[in-house]
């Protein structure tokens, strides 16, 4: 087993899947020669040639639209959108075609494709480089949306996504791309899509998070533990389809629920989870199921972003409020 960052795990997984399955093709802007602006695809073109890993023109609609065609005709495209903020030109393809091919053709065609994209804030970036758009995908019937928060899960989930018969949006929390390492087994394994993970068991409150927020919750938990508050942390891992059972089971035990996300609050993923908990665990609730999301504003540039990002202190504050409720 080797120690890897999330980014290295992704690179390693792409390599492994390309090796094992000659129908896997990888492309996107700057993906070939340079190996991607974050180097997620470094070395792949050299190893597998320009027909399996290549630079696309600056054309997101083209990247995703051609992936649809390739997937219909025998390939498994794993395409990269350079930053999630630039997926909008491809949104027509994603919403109108990627999500619908199976249902429109009543199963005659299906799209085994993966759309990878770095997302999320906290990297002092320019405009359009910090958003969290998971809802915009999760809201579309026909898509699966996956977000890893550790190198181990990155490999397991990406492997599962590539093997999935349906299209998967694979969002990568770029802020923690290289923030830590973890043991990643060399052999192929999958982390099933649609299965959340109880990262730590606790008794007083259930906190659900994903991506870079998992680490923030963990930091908050250190603080809270000293105050005698026991948090059960669930890493959602798959935004859609949601692992309802794991969440409800936990809330029925703890009686309190908080979801933390980087995405803006209104109509965000938190609303979905709170609704699910309210209906499914109504009789167990000691406090209102609550969401902690970003303000409903355009992500501020660096000189205002510190106001916007959710950190462990705010998470701890919100947890305390619910415990005291």
């Amino acid at each position: 087993m080797a120690l890897m960052t999330i980014l290295q795990a992704i690179n390693h997984t792409l390599d492994q899947q390309m090796e094992k399955d000659s129908t896997v093709v990888v492309y996107g802007e700057d993906v070939g020669v340079e190996g991607g602006v974050f180097r997620a695809t470094a070395g792949l073109q050299k190893k597998y040639g320009v027909e399996r890993c290549f630079d696309a023109p600056v054309s997101e609609a083209g990247i995703v639209g051609t992936a649809v065609g390739m997937a219909i005709n025998g390939l498994k495209p794993v395409v990269e959108i350079q930053f999630s903020g630039f997926m909008f030109p491809a949104y027509n393809q994603i919403a109108a075609h990627v999500a619908r091919m199976r249902v429109r053709s009543r199963g005659k065609y299906h799209l085994p494709l993966v759309i990878r994209m770095p997302y999320g804030g906290g990297i002092r970036a320019l405009e359009h480089h910090s958003e969290s758009q998971e809802t915009l995908f999760a809201h579309i019937p026909g898509l699966k949306v996956v977000i890893p928060s550790t190198p181990y899960d990155a490999k397991g989930l990406l492997t599962a996504a590539i093997k999935d018969p349906d299209p998967v949006i694979f969002m990568e929390p770029k802020r923690i791309y290289r923030a830590f390492k973890q043991e990643v087994p060399e052999e192929e394994y999958i982390v099933p899509i649609g299965k959340a993970k109880v990262v730590k068991e606790g008794t007083d409150i259930t906190v659900v998070a994903w991506g870079a927020m998992v680490r923030e919750v963990q930091k908050a938990m250190q603080e809270l533990e000293q105050e005698g508050i026991s948090v059960e942390l669930i890493d959602l891992r798959t935004i859609k389809p949601i692992d309802k059972d794991t969440i409800l089971e936990s809330v029925q035990k703890t009686g309190r629920f908080l979801v933390v996300h980087e995405a803006v609050t209104s109509f965000g993923p938190g609303a979905e989870l709170v609704s699910l908990v309210t209906q499914g665990a109504f009789l167990s609730l000691e406090a209102p199921p609550t969401r902690l999301g970003a303000f409903d504003v355009t992500v501020p540039l660096d000189k205002g972003e510190h106001h916007y990002l959710i950190d462990s202190k705010r998470i701890a504050y919100e947890v305390r409020k619910l415990i005291k409720y």
């Binding site: 209104s266 303000f295 409903d296 504003v297 205002g304």
Partner: peptide
Amino acid sequence: GFYQLEDVFKYQYAEMPQHLVEQYEAY
């Protein structure tokens, strides 16, 4: 340096709708 919290909220709409006022005040 850094800018004021108010600037994060103030320019999203001509007038701040209720949900933004609430988020601003709560923060």
